[in-house]
Amino acid sequence: MLRYRFYVVGCGGTGSLLARDLAKLLTSSPHTMTLIDGDVVEEKNIIRQGYQFQDIGENKAAVLSKKINALYNVDAYVIDSYLTKNELLVDINKNDDLYPVILGCVDNDNTRALLENTFKKCNGAVYIDSANGEYEGNIYIARIFNNKQIGTLRSDVYKLSNDHHPLDKSCQNQVADGNIQYLVTNTKMAIGILEHCNALLENQLKEGVQIVKRFKTVFYTQ
């Protein structure tokens, strides 16, 4: 049986909710998880993200991993910085006995491009990438098997924009924080990713695209 390492990249609205429930899915299993984010918890994050007031000022990935390790029988590791180059690939190669599952929960295409490049350099990997607005979103599921890509990446469908990386301070003003509808949509996205993770663990993962709209979801297999 493969041993997976699930990389939750981005611990904001979708990622923090996903990490909380992914830990439950992995508890008492041989699989592990790594949380990746360079951001810190702010008061405005409390409403729609998986944090509490006592977490304010703490690194999101670090404080979330502490909760997971304390509550569940699962190993949750941390990269408490933003991805800028090949940090994820270095960690994947360092843990080459674990099959990487990259879970993209970021809000910018610059980081998505980094994740796609990392995915393409893996001998075997799964990449599940989510993106959403206030009311709807989508999830792309792809896999590399025998050095061949199965499924579509986001950049295969449209050109990724050259938007701001999280390290660019002009990107830090997130109007979504505190928005209840975003909480609802982020929760739906997290559940969607979690369902694909569960399918992977049951050897039933299907590559494709899941469209999440208000009051409904549609999954297109590839």
Rank of each mutant, 00 (worst) to 15 (best):
N117G: 10
N117D: 15
N117H: 10
N117P: 04
T118H: 06
T118G: 04
T118P: 06
T118M: 05
T118Q: 07
F119L: 02
K121F: 05
K121H: 08
C122G: 02
C122R: 01
C122Q: 05
C122K: 02
C122S: 04
N123S: 10
N123I: 07
N123M: 07
N123A: 09
G124A: 15
G124F: 05
G124L: 08
G124Q: 12
G124H: 08
G124W: 03
A125I: 00
A125P: 00
A125L: 00
A125K: 00
V126W: 00
V126H: 03
V126A: 02
Y127M: 06
Y127P: 01
Y127K: 01
Y127G: 02
I128E: 01
I128A: 03
I128G: 06
I128V: 14
D129S: 05
D129V: 08
D129W: 01
D129H: 03
S130W: 04
S130P: 05
N132I: 07
N132R: 09
N132M: 13
N132L: 07
N132H: 11
N132C: 12
G133P: 03
G133V: 12
E134C: 09
E134Y: 12
E134K: 14
E134A: 12
Y135D: 08
Y135V: 11
Y135L: 14
Y135T: 15
E136A: 14
E136Y: 07
E136P: 04
E136L: 09
E136W: 08
E136I: 07
G137M: 02
G137Y: 10
G137P: 01
G137A: 06
N138H: 15
N138S: 15
N138I: 10
N138A: 15
N138V: 13
I139C: 03
I139D: 04
I139F: 08
I139V: 14
I139N: 06
Y140I: 03
Y140K: 11
Y140N: 10
I141H: 02
I141Y: 05
I141E: 04
I141K: 07
I141V: 15
A142N: 07
A142Q: 06
A142K: 04
A142M: 05
R143I: 14
R143L: 13
R143W: 05
R143M: 12
I144K: 01
I144F: 00
I144V: 06
F145T: 13
F145A: 13
F145H: 13
F145V: 15
F145S: 13
N146C: 10
N146M: 11
N146P: 07
N146S: 11
N146R: 12
N146T: 07
N147G: 09
N147A: 04
N147Q: 13
K148F: 09
K148S: 13
K148P: 06
K148G: 08
Q149I: 13
Q149H: 08
Q149P: 01
Q149E: 05
I150C: 12
G151M: 05
T152E: 10
T152P: 06
T152F: 10
T152R: 14
T152K: 15
L153D: 07
L153Q: 08
L153A: 12
L153K: 08
R154L: 09
R154V: 12
R154A: 11
R154S: 11
R154Y: 12
R154M: 14
S155Q: 06
S155Y: 11
S155D: 05
S155A: 13
D156Y: 07
D156S: 13
D156E: 13
D156F: 11
D156L: 12
D156R: 11
D156M: 10
